[in-house]
Every structure is written in C-alpha cells, then in structure tokens.
Simulated assay, not measured.
Amino acid sequence: MRGKNLPNDLVFEEQIFAENMGKKIKFSRKFRKVTQSQLAKSMHITFQQFQKYEGGQNSISVFRLHQISSKLNIDISSFFLPLAAFINYVRYQNIDITSQEFHEQNE
C-alpha cells in the first residue's frame, strides 16, 4: 500500500512522483516503438503490473527502472530530470532502437 504511515503531504508527493515517472516510462517506450506487453515480457513481469507503473498507480523500484532504462537504451539518470527535459533528452540522443532490434535483444 502506497504511503503507509506517511503524512498526507508526503503521500501526495509520492503519488506525483510515481505519476511523473510513469509518464516518462510511457513516453520512452512509445518513442522506441515498443509495446507494454513486449517490455513487460522482457522484464518477466505481468502486463498489468507494467500498466500500473506507467499509470502511476504503483511506485517503481530502482531495479525495475534500471531494467527499463537498459532495455530501451536510455540513461537511468535521465528519468530523474524534469518531464520536459526528459522528453528532450530522449528525442535528441543519438541512440536509436527499433522495435525489431528490441525483440532481437530481449529474446
């Protein structure tokens, strides 16, 4: 359960953080043209769990964020940038990965 034993303002901050992280995950996944199912399968988690990360319903662990960043070839530290800076970082980095390449790397 999120926010257990935390003051209300910290629960709110945690919720906002999870939602923003989810937006970054979703943007980077779509930018790389990878489906939720593909990424979830490569991480050995359910599609439903992945949806909860992207939707901000569940906070994501550093381990899971590391998996996502590695599989999408995005520096993990960039996920801690403000949303607009993150989007610019992903759009303008020189590394590109196609959905086909993602499949080949994660099978």
Rank of each mutant, 00 (worst) to 15 (best):
V11P: 00
P82S: 00
G56T: 10
I76L: 13
T98Q: 13
N88V: 14
S42C: 08
K52A: 01
I16D: 09
K23S: 09
Q15S: 09
A18K: 04
S59D: 15
I45M: 06
K26E: 10
Q49I: 13
Y92A: 03
D75T: 14
F47H: 10
T35R: 07
K24V: 13
S28D: 01
K52H: 10
K26F: 06
N58M: 01
E104K: 11
F50E: 01
Q36Y: 05
F47Y: 10
A85K: 15
M43Y: 02
Q93E: 07
E107P: 02
Q57R: 04
F50C: 00
F86N: 01
Q100P: 13
Q93V: 02
Q67V: 07
R64V: 12
A18T: 14
I45A: 11
A18G: 06
H103M: 11
F31V: 04
A84V: 14
L81A: 05
F86W: 09
V62Y: 04
D96G: 03
Y89Q: 09
Q48W: 09
G56R: 07
F31S: 03
K41F: 00
Q100V: 15
I45S: 08
N58S: 10
F63H: 12
E14T: 14
H44D: 15
G22P: 04
D96H: 14
K26Y: 14
K33T: 13
R91L: 15
F102R: 02
I74E: 01
Q15P: 00
N88H: 10
D96P: 11
S78V: 08
Q48I: 12
Q100E: 15
I97Q: 12
F79V: 12
A84P: 06
T98G: 09
F102W: 09
V11E: 06
L10H: 09
G56N: 09
F47Q: 07
A18Q: 08
K71V: 04
I74T: 03
F63E: 11
V11R: 05
N5C: 13
I76G: 03
F80S: 04
K26L: 13
N5K: 12
L6R: 00
E14Y: 14
E14M: 11
P7L: 08
F47D: 03
Q36H: 07
Q51E: 08
V11C: 02
N106V: 00
Y53S: 05
T46K: 10
I87Y: 05
R2N: 14
R91M: 15
E101D: 15
E107C: 11
